[in-house]
């Protein structure tokens, strides 16, 4: 069991991290102190053209090794310690760091792949260094602790974003460690997830065939990689990606007038189907996508107010920040909630 929530303002209007912290706090019965985190979009307007790498270092040696590695590969525009406050509930076992980087011109055409590769290399081969996010004008903040303590640690209220997500974790399948908290991220894809991906082995091996390395000791990372593969690399829409990951049942496909279309999707992308109980919120710079497993074994509520779309595990979490809403609904299994910026690509 976990608690998750998020919202996006489709006009790109930014709010600070107070609301998302409150949202997370309303669901404390759903998780414990073994993992909390946030994703925020639009937080680095001064560096919006650079990739922002958020890292966790175990020690100075790891930082130096990473810096050496990065220097050879990319142009580091700026790097600094991510500001933190001292919070008694969370021991500072890692040093959070951020780099704003430009990809060298030679690699601009394959910029995204180059960056994925860079992240995989750091996470796979530099001991004590771990990239937790790698998108532009966005960042992930996470640690072992309750979301409200993680918020205090990273001074979340100092950031302003047009899209936020929060996650409180009740780890049942893997050990709690900072890197293992949600959101999971690759490029600008961030994923928070409640549930278990029982198809993990199948998904993981499919992703490995496409060059992704699943090293995080948790099942959620496959969702981020699948979105990256399907939407960025294969050029599919978010809607199609959702019908691949949580496809209609054959009995419905056989009756549908789009039978051939869905048959092709399921045949081609069978190993990308996610199975097991889950509710997932996925963000990228343009949109927020929320969806369930095929028989909806985890809660997910959606709501709208003006140009803002909200999703959360519990309605109370949404009502706590916006008591009066235009519309509240429980999305059905297989019907994703997809909210896009009106001016996609907006800052």
């Amino acid at each position: 069991m976990c608690g998750l929530g998020g919202f996006i303002n489709k006009d790109g209007k930014k709010v600070d991290g107070t609301a998302i912290t409150t949202m997370g706090g309303m669901m404390e019965a759903r998780y414990d102190e073994r993992g909390g985190g946030f994703a925020a979009y639009g937080i680095y307007p001064n560096h919006s053209d650079q990739y922002a790498l958020h890292l966790l270092f175990d020690d100075e040696r790891a930082r130096e090794a990473t810096e050496e590695y990065l220097k050879d590969r990319v142009n580091i525009v700026k790097d600094e310690c991510i500001p933190t406050a001292s919070v008694k509930e969370i021991a500072p076992v890692h040093v959070p760091w951020r780099y704003f980087i430009d990809v060298p011109e030679d690699f601009e055409a394959v910029e995204a792949d180059f960056l994925v590769d860079t992240v995989m290399k750091i996470n796979g081969s530099i001991p004590g260094a771990f990239v937790i996010s790698s998108g532009k004008n966005m960042g992930v903040f996470k640690a072992t602790g309750l979301p409200r303590n993680v918020a205090a640690l990273f001074k979340i209220s100092d950031y302003k974003a047009y899209a936020w997500s929060v996650h409180g974790r009740f780890p049942t399948n893997t050990q709690g460690w900072w890197g293992g908290a949600h959101p999971f991220n690759i490029l600008d894809w961030s994923v928070v997830h409640n549930g278990e991906i029982s198809s993990y082995g199948t998904n993981k091996r499919y992703l490995e065939m496409h060059g992704y390395e699943c090293k995080l000791r948790t099942d959620t990372e496959v969702v981020a990689y699948l979105f990256d593969l399907l939407v960025r690399k294969h050029g599919l829409s978010a809607e199609v990606a959702c019908s691949i990951m949580s496809p209609p049942f054959w009995k419905n496909i056989d009756r549908s007038d789009k039978r051939e279309y869905y048959e092709a999707l399921r045949m081609t992308y069978a190993p990308a189907m996610l199975n097991g109980p889950f509710a997932i919120i996925v963000n990228n710079k343009d949109s927020m996508i929320a969806f369930n497993d095929r028989i909806k074994l985890r809660p997910l509520i959606a709501a709208e107010l003006g140009e803002t779309t909200f999703v959360a595990s519990e309605e109370a979490a949404i009502r706590e920040i916006e008591p009066e809403l235009d519309r509240v609904w429980a999305p059905r299994a297989g019907s994703p909630v997809i909210a896009r910026l009106n001016n996609a690509g907006g800052k």
């Binding site: 198809s199 082995g201 190993p271 189907m273 097991g276």
Partner: peptide, 16 residues
């Protein structure tokens, strides 16, 4: 029993 509702999620799933 595996919590899967489709065979494609067992295929190659050596994790199980």
């Amino acid at each position: 029993a595996l919590g899967l509702n489709s065979l494609e999620s067992l295929r190659g799933n050596r994790d199980r």
